[in-house]
Design a protein around this nucleic acid. Structure first.
Lengths: 199, 199
DNA sequence: GGAATTCTTGACCGTGCGGTCCACCATAAG
DNA sequence: CTTATGGTGGACCGCACGGTCAAGAATTCC
């Protein structure tokens, strides 16, 4: 054996991910990446390859974690309907936090690079397919629990919810104030997931 | 007087807008702008200032035109409800065209630059306020025409429609196929703008 | 035609980029 | 302690970037 690594790969990926998240891919320089990671160019290149590969690693790490958290949120909620509603109101909850200012890294990356980088586009496609499947499962559970009409197609409703959520996340980035955003989220939730307690 | 300009300002702005639209701000070089506009650096700088100012000009021109077309579509439709539904299905209609591949320039720009450039953020904010107002007027008309529940708050519904539309535009950029996208659009339209012909 | 004025072209500039490379260093095995 | 191995940091490279500028071309006015 020889000299061991002096850095933690996960920590570096997280720092790098935050930098790409804040500034975007093109606007992030290698110097930025060195600064936030604390590593020299040589180490960065030896460990991760060039800037694009490092970006893809950070992006995959981000989507993996996001899906993990999504799965957890959707399955652990006592009632599926509540989890689905929370999905729409999530962009609002941390309306004063970083989530709103930065949006979703996967969405930002798709917007910036989807045209030019087929690999990013493909990753985006797979990511949203997975999200749709996760949400669809939760919709199916809500149906079994009697909170969503049994006639709805779970996948179809999942896609509508996902589109609405992405729209909300985007609207929040335009500087819309928290109260208005919250009202819009509630409005969308009320129409896509109507209250059936009276049935 | 002296030598007149050999180029049409509008044509240059359109060409430049398309370039920024395809590649984004940071990934567009001055050489790209010279190529698509047919102008030399000197002319570009004398006429529009630096890259950022040129970008802002092109962006404003884009949003002005978009709002013009939106206003036209919303007011000229015989029935307001049809115009609102078309709003959601617009991203799908040209599903094979450029609209889907490129998304919305204002949305892309907000995503790329909103964090870093307050002027872009401010422009985004104003733009979506205007869009909300235009759509809200159309919702009010639909209410007068009896196609939308009179209890709904027009502005609120306008925001929900706008969020849904932005979400659809984004989903289309992830490589979702046209049929699935169309189904999602119909699904959202059905829930946000339910058929009241039976009332 | 000449003068004045504006537009156009492209050479030029300094800078910072992404990426390479190598001398040095820390560690583990013998 | 020596040696082998892999990690580290920064000097270095060529390039393309955004931006400047001056000389020349095109036009109008007199």
């Amino acid at each position: 054996m020889a000299r061991p690594r002096a850095f933690d790969e996960k920590q570096v990926l997280d720092a790098v991910r935050d930098q790409f998240w804040d500034a975007g891919y093109a606007a992030t320089s290698l110097e930025d990446l060195m600064r936030v990671s604390g590593l020299g160019k040589g180490s960065l290149y030896a460990a991760f390859g060039d800037k694009r590969q490092l970006f893809l690693r950070a992006l995959r790490s981000y989507t993996d974690e996001s899906h993990g958290r999504l799965r957890e949120a959707l399955t652990e909620a006592p009632r599926a309907l509540d989890a689905l509603r929370a999905l729409l109101e999530a962009p609002v909850d941390d309306a004063m936090g970083e989530g709103v200012r930065r949006g979703c890294l996967m969405a930002n990356s798709t917007s910036e690079l989807g045209n030019a980088d087929p690999e990013v586009l493909d990753h985006a496609h797979r990511t949203y397919e997975t999200s749709t499947a996760l949400i669809g499962d939760c919709v199916a559970r809500a149906q079994r629990e009697g909170d969503v009409s049994a006639e709805a197609d779970p996948t179809e409703l999942a896609r509508a919810l996902l589109a609405a959520q992405q729209g909300l996340v985007f609207m929040s980035r335009t500087g819309m104030d928290a109260a208005t955003l919250a009202a819009t989220a509630r409005s969308l939730a009320a129409q896509l997931l109507p209250d059936r307690s009276g049935d």
